[in-house]
């Protein structure tokens, strides 16, 4: 994979401001972002705009990215961990067209990474920004449909309902049966939805050197985890939080510690597993790693 590439060949879209949004709107979003950073895990209402991409397809993340991005930034966009999923391609193009910024598929090269459903496998570093696309920002939403009620619960730090829900899983099923959108407690204060990342990724949020920003466009909320913030996945002493494990390594790069996608290879029920993070996988292959590496071939 070559260095940063600009998909649409640079230049911004005629008739539109840099990164699509007007400067007043960006300032409004930045104010919300500052408040969000100041109160980690707290959902800040913001005047989300109608965007040219559909609600539920990353409008919150796009607005946050648009408010943060500058001409010098290098943008990476992933969906399901991969750079080449259609929606990631579409959003990357959106910024290549409207902001003319450099884009990359390499996690290490990116200054801003917009993501849906994953945190890259490669540890992020200071100065990087991870922008999450969030469908339902409210972790308590499926326990209490009304916003007025959930805001009250957050204000009172009344998170009993969430613990009861997790306990009910254990009582009924023997384990906590939440595999993604697994709720976390941020900075010992707010229970927060990590967006629908697999719980496998939850530990990466804790004390992460990068700035983590969350944008929910349709629900008009922004929240944040500043660098080096405590993020704890909710659990019980006798049922500690645990992450997914696979019995086999990635079929392409041989990785054992990464999140794997299951790919059905025929109609006889055969399947293989490979890294969901395509950059991580490609980097390992380039470095000579593979399913047979370390063994004689």
């Amino acid at each position: 994979m070559s260095a940063a590439t600009n998909i649409d060949g640079g230049g911004t879209l005629a008739g539109y401001n840099f990164a699509y949004l007007d400067e007043q709107t960006k300032r409004m979003i930045r104010r919300a972002l500052l408040k969000a950073v100041a109160i980690p895990g707290y959902q800040v209402p913001f005047a989300s705009r109608d965007m040219p991409l559909p609600y539920g397809w990353g409008t919150g993340g796009i607005q946050v990215t648009a408010a943060c991005i500058g001409q010098e930034d290098v943008l990476k966009v992933i969906d399901q961990g991969a750079d080449d999923t259609t929606n990631a391609v579409s959003i990357r193009r959106f910024f290549a067209t409207t902001a003319g910024v450099a884009t990359t598929e390499r996690t290490v090269e990116a200054s801003i990474i917009q993501t849906r459903h994953r945190i890259p496998e490669k540890p992020l570093t200071e100065g990087q920004i991870l922008v999450y696309q969030v469908p339902i920002p409210e972790p308590l939403r499926f326990l209490e449909p009304r916003e007025r009620e959930t805001r009250k619960l957050h204000a009172l730090a009344d998170y009993g309902v969430m613990h009861v829900r997790l306990y009910e899983d254990i009582a009924r099923l023997g384990r906590i049966a939440t595999s993604y959108s697994y709720p976390v407690l941020v900075n010992d204060r707010y229970v927060m939805s990590p967006s629908p990342i697999p719980k496998f990724d939850n530990p990466k949020m804790h004390m992460n050197p990068a700035l983590q920003l969350f944008g929910a466009g349709r629900e008009k909320r922004i929240y944040a985890i500043p660098p080096f913030t405590k993020v704890v996945s909710l659990d019980f002493e006798d049922h500690p939080f645990e992450i997914q494990k696979w019995d086999e390594p990635c079929a392409i790069c041989g990785a054992t510690g990464s999140y794997l996608d299951e790919v059905v290879t025929d109609d006889a029920g055969n399947r293989m597993f490979c890294c969901s993070d395509t950059d991580h996988c490609a980097e390992r292959v380039a470095a000579g790693e593979g399913p047979g590496a370390g063994e004689s071939r």
């Binding site: 969906d79 469908p135 697999p198 496998f200 349709r218």
Partner: peptide, 27 residues
């Protein structure tokens, strides 16, 4: 908003679905 969110279900969800697969197999 509604059509966007309903139709976003067309987007890939295989990372989360993989979590659910692992979960249901374990259970």
């Amino acid at each position: 908003q509604a059509s966007g969110f309903v139709e976003h279900l067309k987007l890939p969800h295989y990372v989360d679905f993989q979590g659910e697969l692992e979960n249901i197999r374990r259970l």
